[in-house]
Nucleic acid binder design. Structure first.
Lengths: 238, 238
DNA sequence: CGTCAGGTTGACGCGTCTCAAAGTGGGTGG
DNA sequence: CCACCCACTTTGAGACGCGTCAACCTGACG
């Protein structure tokens, strides 16, 4: 297991002006509490491909994503892989609260995270209802996303899967202020395949077909998306 | 939309000796709090097939399942259906916290629920960290189940899906003290199909094959399961 | 210029879906 | 009590979407 920490240390910059603050659990805290929580946190960085934690590990930390993208995946014994989600800035890792990690987390490109020891974070949160409610809010959002993804995996065709994925990814990015003309896709085709329950060949073919049909334009590391046409092909919401 | 309430009223029996208490959110409350919460609740019953709430409805209530089984599902515009889960005694409905229900809930057989108005429950929970932590615990468990189900939907074959489902269902039932020689399956074949991302024909064929292979014995409303052989066919955990 | 990871494209096969028909059991009315 | 109906399930035959296997392309990097 490759684990590479590029740099780490205590908070290099104040949490007050953290770009992810409004999307992360921190949104529930006032400035005093934020400073207190910062005392408990370490800023850690991982290089591309590094494993932040693995499914078999005991969960000794919570993480809040500060910058970058991660793939969260589960493996079957014969090494089939299902990517259960991609984590973006503001996402909180460790919501399950179980003693062992439910999935593995790997950096896609470089990532920066705030790390909290499980015990000290639990102590800090224990009697802060505002923070606890914020965690419930994030968990509920995550659960809703998971259920929407079950519909995709169970009931959508390959083309609908790709179209739905692109729309959902776009919406998530714009939700954290990363919207734009070009839709960045930092993950590889294989990651998309393992996220959508397809093979890499089917993903590649479907991207090509969508480009031929004028739904997307493919660039290195991203696409330009015709949202209306993609929605028409996605099989619909819900 | 058929909504049939067989009977309703305030708490007909004390919450103290509720069979679901230890599995429900109520486990976080002492007897005084329990009595207080009971004041806010209505016991409601639904007959088989009744809709408890629909995806389009505004979520005005939370529910805690007291007795029975429900199917929780999402529909695509062309009426393809994905059952995102089955709710059992102790399960809490409304975890997403969003203003609209994320899925529809229908009774499979008769069900009994505790209903809380969203506002009064929120007020009650607001400054009870113990209860909030309990909700986080239930949400985390639900999230872990959802992620496990994504692996099933995205990466398992039909036979592995059925075998995994039977094992998981068995484990869930024994977790709430409903284990036994015969494994009850209150849901129809079509429900299983829509839960596992299959068609009813494939489910039926696979059940027949598992019976021919001596993995299960099929009875009306349930099966007897050879757990070891089912696990061998399930493709493995995680 | 060679190597290598990632991506694309094609031919073919298989697992699951689709369509169709028949079997089963519970409930109801004659 | 039997005849019929209806919802649900089972089984079969054929079609098709996606997976598998294999070859080739592309760009980054040394």
């Amino acid at each position: 297991m490759k684990i590479s920490v590029l740099g780490e240390g205590t908070h290099r910059q104040s949490c007050q002006d953290c770009a992810a603050r409004d999307f992360a659990i921190c949104a529930a805290l006032d400035n005093t509490e934020l400073r207190e929580l910062a005392q408990l946190s370490r800023h850690v960085r991982f290089e591309s491909g590094a494993t932040v934690f693995a499914q078999t590990n005991m969960a000794t930390s919570f993480f809040s994503v500060h910058e970058g993208t991660l793939r969260l995946y589960k493996l079957l014994p014969d090494s089939r892989r299902q990517i259960v989600g991609f984590a973006l800035p503001g996402d909180f890792l460790g919501l399950s609260g179980l003693p062992q990690h439910e999935f593995s987390a790997e950096a896609i490109g470089r990532v920066a995270l705030c790390q909290f020891s499980k015990e000290s974070f639990a102590t800090f949160a224990e009697n802060r209802p505002g923070l606890l409610r914020r965690i419930i809010e994030l968990a509920g959002r995550e659960l809703a996303r998971a259920q929407e993804h079950m519909v995709l995996l169970g009931r959508r065709s390959a083309e609908e899967k790709i179209a739905s994925f692109l729309i959902g990814w776009r919406d998530r990015l714009s939700g954290i202020g990363r919207g734009g003309e070009i839709l960045p896709l930092p993950m590889k085709r294989l990651d998309i395949a393992d996220h959508l329950g397809l093979t890499i060949e089917t993903v590649s073919r479907t991207f090509s077909k969508l480009e031929r049909d004028g739904v997307i334009q493919i660039f290195a590391g991203g696409v330009v998306l015709d949202v209306a046409r993609a929605e028409a092909l996605s099989g619909g919401a819900s």
